[in-house]
Design a protein around this nucleic acid. Sequence first.
DNA 1: CAGGAAATTGCCTAAAAGGCATCTTTGCTC
DNA 2: GAGCAAAGATGCCTTTTAGGCAATTTCCTG
Lengths: 202, 202
Amino acid sequence: MADGLRERKKQETRIALSWAAVRLAVERGYGNVRIEDIAAEAGVSLRTFRNYFDSKADAIAAREVDRSLRIAEELRARPADEPLWVAVRAAIEKHFALGEEGHGGQRPPDEQWLAGIRLMMSEPALQGAVARAYARAGDELAAAIADRTGTSGMYPRLVAEVIAATRGVVTAEWLRADPPRSIAELLSSALDQIEAGLPVPE
Amino acid sequence: MADGLRERKKQETRIALSWAAVRLAVERGYGNVRIEDIAAEAGVSLRTFRNYFDSKADAIAAREVDRSLRIAEELRARPADEPLWVAVRAAIEKHFALGEEGHGGQRPPDEQWLAGIRLMMSEPALQGAVARAYARAGDELAAAIADRTGTSGMYPRLVAEVIAATRGVVTAEWLRADPPRSIAELLSSALDQIEAGLPVPE
DNA sequence: CAGGAAATTGCCTAAAAGGCATCTTTGCTC
DNA sequence: GAGCAAAGATGCCTTTTAGGCAATTTCCTG
């Protein structure tokens, strides 16, 4: 078998800890959550929490790490003969569609997930951990792009980082836009601009 | 007056702490430096260190924060009628030329500065703080671009984040390239690709 | 089902984070 | 140039985090 009970349980614990961390932080505020509480919520000891994550911030960011890594996965899943940017668009779109299937059910914009995103964007103490998460995702993405295009050097990394940046900007704009705008629309617009070389719009 | 002795001294202390933090971390390794040591090195109390920075990592990243903020400054300093991307190229080039004038003298590639950069790129515990630094710089840059181009919405932020990403990729490539390559050349190449919309190279 | 690797846990020490009160220094006013 | 108010520096204190070490329990393999 690929991974026995052992590996699966470890993954479950990791996810349980991360969700517990996000939930508690959203409820009480980041600063009012002790890792002891998170561990208790997930049913493990404080010391075990520490075996999984180096810090409280990492635990909260873990969920976003997993989600972000999917972009590279999605990209690899696209047909190999599809043009790069077409595949990229599809991969990011799928990434953004994620959030419904968070922990089982599929109630639309998943309030829990959204609150978590807002938390991560607003709490300064979390930005570092989140940034590291995105850096990790960028590495994977760059590798996927290198494989797909057969390029090396700066190109794969440039594309990966630009995609990561785009994703961040789109997310921020989506959260901010007061007459709400659809993510798909924002994303499409942003990628159009990227592909056009970012000329100053008139 | 704009800033009295008070303000200037505060700035000096901040810089002294940051340099001390970098120097000690480079010498002994990040984990073997206590903030107490940094404070002592800079001639202030431990408690005062904490008034300046929230963490050891922040102190180390502070120098990079200041340096990164200069990109936006340089951009604002360019002639207003210069095309955006021309101005951007010039601003980043100047940013990269920085490092000689670190703390007074101007011995070429400033070993101290380079070692600091390597440290920041390699030590995981620092990546969060550094990422936050770049995020700050991105905000300033986006504002500068918005002012210069008279645009709003996602465009200024997209450009700012793409520039930040480019700078990061170029720096990484420059540090890694074994037959060393000039920063100017790498930067120029990267920006050419960005302006062309990142088509897959042949 | 026995041996061994891996994970969980408790215990312990060092270090970090940050509130609060006090003392100094700086900048401004008369 | 003396005095006053505000801002900064410092010391002290408590809570929380970080992580090493060893004992114990849980899963995998042969």
